[in-house]
Amino acid sequence: MSSLDLWLQATVNGIALGWLYVLMALGLTLILSIMGILQLAHGEIYMLGAYAVHYLVGRGLGLYPAIATSMFIMAVLGIILERGLFRPRSGREVVLCSIVISTGLTLILTSAIVVIFGLYTKSLPLLATGSVEIFGAAVPKDRILAIGFSVLALVLLYLFLKKTRLGLAMIASAQNREGSFLKGINPNRMSMAAMAIGCALAALAGALAGAILQLQPYMGALPMIKGLVIIVLGGLGSIPGALIGGLILGLIDGIVPVFFSPAVASVGPLVVVILVLLFRPKGLLGHD
C-alpha cells in the first residue's frame, strides 16, 4: 500500500469523525450564542440519543426510524430542559447557573443510564459491513454512510435557517441578541428552538457514533470537549465556523495519529484553540 492510499484512508476517516463533531458543535454553538449559556450536558444528550436508539431498536423498530424517533424525543427533551432548567432567572448569573445546572444534569443522566441500561457496553446494528475500494484504498462503508447522514442533516438545517422565518430569526438572535430582541424576536422562543435543534443534532451524532463505535454511559465526555474546541475555533454563533472547525478537528484526529503520534493529535488542537482564543478571541470566522 502506497503512502497515498494511507493518506486517503486517514482522510476519509477524519472526515467521517469530523462530521460527527460538526453535528455536536452545531448544537452547542446555537445554544451558546442564542442562550448565552455553557451547556456542559450536551455530551450526555448525545449519549442519551444513542441509548434511545438502542432501546427503540430493541423494541423492534428499524435502525433508521429509531434514529428519527430518538432525534424527536431529544428535541422534546431539549425544550423541557430549556423551560425547566436553563431559562435565565433574574438575580442569578446566567453562565454560572448554566454550568452548575448542566454539570448536575451530566451526573444525573449518566448515572440514570447506568441504572436503567446497566454498565454493559451496548452496540447498535451496524450501518453497513465491510469496506469499499476508493483508488485502491479500503474505506469502511459505515463511515461513508455516516458522512452521508451528517451532510443530509446539515443541508436540512441550512435550508431551515435560511428559508424559514423561524430560522432567520434564530440567525439574527445568534448574531445579536439585544438587536433581535428590539426587532421583536422573542428570545425565549429562540432559546427553545436552539435547544430543540441542538439536542436533535446531538442525538443524531450519538446514534451514528454508537453504530460506528460502541455505546457506553460515559461516551459523551470526549465529544463534548471536541465540541467546545470546535465552537471556539470556528467562532461563537458561526455555523460555517462550526462546519470548518469540525472538519479541521476531524482531519487532525484522523490523520495526525497515523502520520505523527496520538500525543500530538490530542494536545495539538488544544494549543491551536488557545492561540486562536488569544489572538482572535471571536474565533476564526467569528464576528463582533
Binding site: 445546572i101 448536575g104 451526573l107 440514570a112
Partner: peptide, 19 residues
C-alpha cells in the same frame, strides 16, 4: 451508581431554590 445522581440533584436544587 446512585451516588453521582445525589450530588447532581443537590447541585441543581441548590441553584434553583437557594441562589
Amino acid at each position: 451508581q446512585y451516588q453521582p445522581m445525589i450530588t447532581g440533584a443537590i447541585a441543581i436544587l441548590v441553584i434553583l431554590f437557594l441562589p
